[in-house]
Design a protein around this nucleic acid. Structure first.
Length: 703
DNA sequence: TCCTCTCAGCTGTAT
DNA sequence: ACAGCTGAGAGGAAT
């Protein structure tokens, strides 16, 4: 299969440096070369029965060789079988006629085309699935002037009247235009023709996150005004909403095209934009459903986020509290909840028996003030009742039960929690820490598919080894930011090297991919927790090397990973091109990473032109004999991870690293993959391998 | 105009 | 470090 035609046509180059270097996370190019007789100076020591050696240096020599434990290969499989989702369409399942009409909502009695209210505002009658077949991305600039609240208009209209308007609005506007311009290179029509809506959903989330991080970057670079709450999430969301860059606008019962059970989100706005849950704050989303002549509200999705006294008996049952009655302000007392709005819709859905999407909010371990939203699939409401809440007021309660046969989602989170606190054993565990302490967080080795005891022999080494020193063309001096580098400090040389901005957001998320990221390093005086050292300090998430069904060993994470987050670097020995060629010829299973100057056009960023970036220090790394978790990452034609060259300031020698970041939010236990890319060699075709990534965009092979 | 299971940043409290 | 509070917020339903 060849690359889809839409991507091959590279649009005219865009001056991306005009405002800011706005470049989505993309894919560069490593290779696999090979050799059995690896030159002895690389790593001579090899213990025969050992699957994985602990590191020799600089870690303590008193290690014990690793002999894999015998774990029953018949152990229970944690893998989620890739079964197709059952037909969840509304109407197929038995529906219970609603016995009690609640006439709270005006019924559109004449059964005409629609309510008299504007369709975008009022409850939207359910349409047949066929009607909404072209629900791709909507781009409607015409809505710009008509949509938006007065508050919004005030905020975006001009800065002279409102002191709260950030002074960077001009800058932000330019940024928005720049980003959207680069995305407009993609023909939306072409894009809409793509199979399903998964692409459009991923695409919108990608644009949203890029925009949000960029706004955040600009905000960070300014002096902070006390008392002013910055909400880059809301600003990015509003912009995209107003531009009509959203999908699944029409509300629907049941599954949302392009959203899979288990998908995770970090902001409520993300779920608004892709049509999973429309309200930006409220927990219950509902719509008008035409029943013969009348229209009644039915619930379509809920967010269980801890704001009320919800209860989850087990992972498949949820006791959800109705809305309202909350004492939002101090001094106010709670009141009895009323059977209206969302509560009424839930009641109606109980009788109607329609599926309700459930999104569960869980605490984000990486960012304790934050929350992660897990789409947990479809539930049905089984019971409802009224009870006295803690404050003594009446609260509606709804018991929701998960429909069986769906992919695991929330229960995966629960399992991971149990593995972590030791209350449950990880099935198929071969070794609890593959790195033998070399990493600050253990790396599990797991096989729950067959009886192979581990990957081929290698030495775990967590960072890059330069066999011979590489001279710097320009010595770098580093910064002297005592309290850590700040974007607002324009005098910081490290900030300047990155084009005047910190390349990371305040919580360590890479803002956008660049030819080279300049991090602080050994020649800087800033502390280790400096924001400009996001790729330093070792692993942040709990990783697991596991046996895949058909691709050998792979890598995945117990923890959720947010888009742009650091995952790991590619560790190993830096070799030169001739060594790489030897390896390639001699060993078919060698692990060699080649940071080439030849880029493959963005596979998962359709339409975005990737200009050929000259990597200032093209690195070749062999992880054949020694390396870290990165060597286990498999190739995919629609990867969720990218690599990025990162240079750490160092006055003595070259300190370049290849670092992996997430390109989208990655749910727990999802395999981590990146695009291996094109081999810059005329003999590349000899190394072509059949690709098993299973992506709809699979090119059929990789190198 | 009103409603709402937001979210970042601040303050106060327990380590 | 963490819990709790504050308040400006967003889209969309209600009026």
């Amino acid at each position: 299969m060849e690359e889809s035609g839409g991507e091959d046509s590279v649009p005219p180059a865009l001056d991306k440096s005009r405002v800011l270097s706005v470049r989505p996370l993309r894919c560069l190019v490593p290779i696999f070369a090979s050799t059995p007789n690896f030159p002895s100076y690389f790593h001579p020591q090899a213990a025969a029965p050992i699957v994985c050696n602990p590191p020799t240096t600089p870690f303590p020599a008193g290690f014990s060789p690793f002999y894999p434990l015998c774990v029953s290969p018949n152990s229970q499989n944690m893998q989620i079988p890739p079964q197709p989702p059952p037909p969840f369409g509304f109407g197929g399942s038995a529906t219970i006629p609603s016995p009690v009409p609640f006439n709270v909502l005006r019924a559109e009695a004449n059964g005409d085309a629609g309510p008299s209210r504007r369709s975008s505002r009022g409850l939207q009658p359910l349409q047949s699935e066929e009607d909404g077949s072209s629900d791709g991305i909507h781009v409607t600039d015409a809505e710009d002037s008509t949509r938006g609240t007065t508050a919004q208009k005030r905020r975006w209209a001009g800065s002279s009247q409102d002191m709260n308007v950030p002074t960077s609005d001009v800058e932000t506007d330019a940024l928005v235009e720049n980003i959207l311009e680069s995305f407009n290179l993609m023909k939306f029509d072409t894009f809409r023709r793509a199979d399903g809506d998964k692409e459009s959903v991923q695409y919108i989330l990608l644009i949203y996150d890029l925009l949000r991080r960029k706004i955040s970057q600009i905000e960070d670079s300014k002096e902070s005004t006390p008392g002013v709450t910055r909400r880059p999430d809301l600003r990015a969301g509003t912009i995209l909403m107003n531009k009509g860059i959203r999908t699944n606008i029409r509300k629907r019962i049941g599954t949302v095209p392009g959203v899979e059970v288990g998908d995770i989100f970090f902001f409520r706005m993300e779920m608004c934009l892709i049509g999973l849950h429309a309200p930006s704050m409220a927990g219950i989303d509902y719509m008008g459903l035409k029943v013969s002549q009348d229209e009644e509200p039915v619930a379509v999705s809920i967010v269980s986020s801890g704001g009320y006294e919800d209860d989850s008996e087990d992972g498949n049952v949820l006791i959800y509290s109705g809305q309202g009655g909350h004492a939002y302000k101090r001094g106010l007392e709670t009141t009895d909840q009323k059977l209206e709005r969302g509560n009424l819709a839930l009641e109606k859905s109980l009788h109607r028996g329609n599926e309700v999407r459930v999104i569960r909010g869980v605490k984000d371990i990486a960012n304790l003030t934050g929350k992660i939203y897990v789409y947990d699939g479809l539930y049905k409401i089984r019971e409802s009742w009224v009870e006295k809440g803690k404050s003594g007021s009446n609260v509606f309660k709804y018991k929701l039960v998960r429909i069986s046969g769906q992919l695991e989602a929330f229960t995966v989170w629960k399992s991971v929690q149990q593995w972590k606190d030791g209350s449950a054993a990880r099935v198929g565990l071969i070794k609890s820490d593959l790195s033998s302490g070399a990493e600050n967080i253990p790396v599990s080795l797991v096989n729950d598919v067959d009886d192979e005891k581990g990957p081929a022999d290698f030495t775990y080494y967590p960072t890059l080894k330069y066999l011979k020193p590489v001279n710097l063309t320009e010595p770098s001096t580093g910064c002297s930011c005592q309290g850590g580098c700040l974007s607002s400090n324009s005098n910081c040389p490290c900030i300047q090297r990155n084009g005047g901005y910190l390349p990371y957001t305040a919580n360590g998320v890479l803002i956008s991919q660049k030819a080279l990221i300049h991090e602080c390093g050994s020649s800087c005086k800033c502390p280790q927790n400096c924001k400009n050292r996001a790729s330093q300090g070792g692993l942040k998430v709990r990783l697991e090397v596991f046996k895949t069904k058909d691709k050998g060993w792979g890598l995945r994470s117990w923890d959720p990973i947010r888009s742009g987050a650091f995952i790991c670097e590619y560790a190993g020995e830096v070799i030169d091109i001739s060594m790489a060629e030897e390896l390639r010829v001699e060993n078919d299973s060698a692990h060699v990473f080649y940071a080439s100057s030849t880029n493959q056009p963005g596979q998962f960023m359709p339409g975005v032109s990737i200009e050929s970036q000259k990597n200032p220090f093209p690195l070749i790394i062999s992880a054949t004999d020694s390396g870290n978790v990165a060597r286990f990452m498999n190739h995919s034609c629609s990867p969720n991870v990218v690599w990025q060259p990162v240079l750490r300031e160092n006055s003595k020698e070259c300190d370049l690293h290849i670092v992996f970041y997430a390109v989208r939010h990655i749910p727990p236990m999802t395999e981590l993959t990146y695009g291996y890319g094109i081999v810059p060699s005329d003999k590349a075709h000899q190394r072509k391998k059949k690709c098993l990534c299973g992506s709809v965009k699979c090119s059929g092979y990789f190198y």
